[in-house]
């Protein structure tokens, strides 16, 4: 890796990190697991003067089971999340999506917080975070605030986290009793999804009573398929029952066009994959 020259600071606490951010402002980039930032630096697409490494702040790596909720520190690696039995049991959608992030090497380095703040709409983590209606805990000079997932992703690579703030944790309500499925569509296993669907549904006596659908790579941010979610309520959990609702999965989206798929193909995939994800979620 041959990046441009930068200064490196590794604060030992969140307060120190916030102080470093306050000092360097726009000239600084925050380093979490480095799985997106380092390629950017390597390709010289970004030339920060200072890199603030959060890797020494052990408190940000904690995963806490709080009864009804599980709070994941922003610096918890994908692998540590996968290894957490509470997440495996009560947040299966998140667990499944993270288990399909890239490859084992990346999952041992990359962090959930880093991925969410990077806010690549093709990332695997935004959609389950939306579908599970997580709360994101942000700290800044004036203290701590909590932002709902639906308000967190603002635009391509842009979130509610301000230049002088840090995402410190992600809080998930346990989803025991929900069925879920992460349906990922890729050409090669470790690659970014062309489209993915994160579906969580509650089924009572064969009828869907609640549904949350997150979409990956269907716009400038991770999205929720609100029209489908609404239409699924009351639907029979069968192929025929969910078909009409799932056909709305791409409503209101503006997906990108690239070599893997143009916008029309992505819209089509979203409807096909949503149907599959919902049925698997309802069956599981």
């Amino acid at each position: 890796m041959i990046p441009t020259q930068f200064d490196y600071v590794a604060p030992g606490s969140v307060d120190e990190a916030l102080a470093a951010l306050a000092q360097h402002g726009d000239d600084a980039k925050v380093l979490a697991g480095g799985q997106s930032l380092l390629p950017v630096l390597r390709m010289r697409l970004n030339a920060p003067e200072v890199v603030i490494d959060l890797g020494k702040i052990d408190a940000l790596r904690e995963i806490r089971d709080e009864g009804d909720t599980i709070t994941i520190g922003a610096m918890a690696t994908y692998q540590s999340i996968l290894d957490h039995t509470g997440i495996k049991g009560s947040l299966r959608l998140l667990h499944q999506a993270i288990s399909e992030v890239a490859d084992p090497q990346i999952r041992h380095r990359g962090t959930l917080g880093g991925a969410l703040v990077h806010a690549d709409p093709a990332g695997d983590c935004g959609a389950p975070t939306l579908a599970l209606e997580a709360d994101l805990v942000i700290q800044g000079p004036s203290g701590e605030r909590t932002v709902a997932a639906t308000d967190f992703f603002e635009d391509l690579f842009t979130t509610a986290v301000g230049d002088d703030e840090l995402l410190t944790a992600i809080r998930f309500r346990k989803h025991d009793g929900w069925g879920s499925h992460y349906e990922k569509f890729v050409r090669v296993a470790h690659q970014w999804p062309i489209v993915s669907i994160a579906a969580a549904v509650k089924v009572d006596g064969g009828t869907i009573s609640e549904a949350r659908i997150g979409l990956v790579n269907m716009g400038s941010t991770a999205l929720r398929a609100s029209a489908t979610e609404a239409a699924l309520v009351g639907a029979q959990a069968t192929a025929e029952g969910v078909a009409e609702a799932c056909a709305k999965a791409a409503d209101g989206t503006n997906p990108p066009s690239d070599l893997n798929g143009d916008a029309d193909y992505r819209r089509h995939l979203a409807t096909v994959l949503t149907k599959r994800a919902v049925l698997k979620a309802a069956g599981g």
Partner: peptide, 16 residues
């Protein structure tokens, strides 16, 4: 050129 990295130039792997 639109495929300047191995992220865009997709190689098969053991799963393929």
């Amino acid at each position: 050129l639109l495929t300047k990295t191995l992220n865009d130039y997709q190689l098969p792997n053991i799963m393929s």
